[in-house]
């Protein structure tokens, strides 16, 4: 029998870390690709961030979350939730680890990066101990 894993248990809601194990979000949804030849569908893209989560939650709270996160997006940035190619996943256990650095992913963890550069890095004592 083909070895297979549960999407719900292995991927959905799992923590995503980059190549250097820097947390960049959670797997909030997954996009399927249906090959034109009629073959089995594949997971094509990983969706992360509150915009993706809002649609998954649904209802009033979900719609509010989606609309708020859409408004907070940088002007000129791509519409829709943040996504990346599922082929970038290097490992799924114990968390989803990518084969690239967070900086190489455009539009991923934007708020965290903004807070890190504008706020956290300016706080006294946030540098390395040897500096």
């Amino acid at each position: 029998m083909t070895e297979h894993v549960s999407v719900r248990m292995t991927l959905l809601d799992a923590q995503i870390v980059d190549r250097d194990r820097l947390p960049i979000g959670r797997v909030d949804d997954l996009e399927l690709f249906f090959p034109p030849d009629g073959g089995p569908p594949q997971i094509a893209r990983v969706l992360t961030g509150s915009q993706a989560l809002g649609k998954r939650i649904g209802g009033v709270i979900g719609r509010w979350l989606t609309s708020m996160s859409a408004r907070l997006r940088r002007p000129g940035s791509r519409a829709g939730p943040s996504t990346f190619d599922a082929g970038l996943i290097a490992d799924t256990k114990p968390m989803v680890r990518l084969r690239v650095q967070a900086d190489e992913l455009e539009g991923i963890a934007g708020l965290e990066r903004w807070l890190a550069s504008r706020l956290v890095e300016r706080l006294p004592g946030t540098g390395h101990a040897d500096k």
């Binding site: 083909t2 070895e3 297979h4 894993v5 549960s6 999407v7």
Partner: peptide, 8 residues
């Protein structure tokens, strides 16, 4: 749920 083959 969906079952998938492991990565890649």
């Amino acid at each position: 749920d969906l079952r998938v083959t492991p990565r890649p």
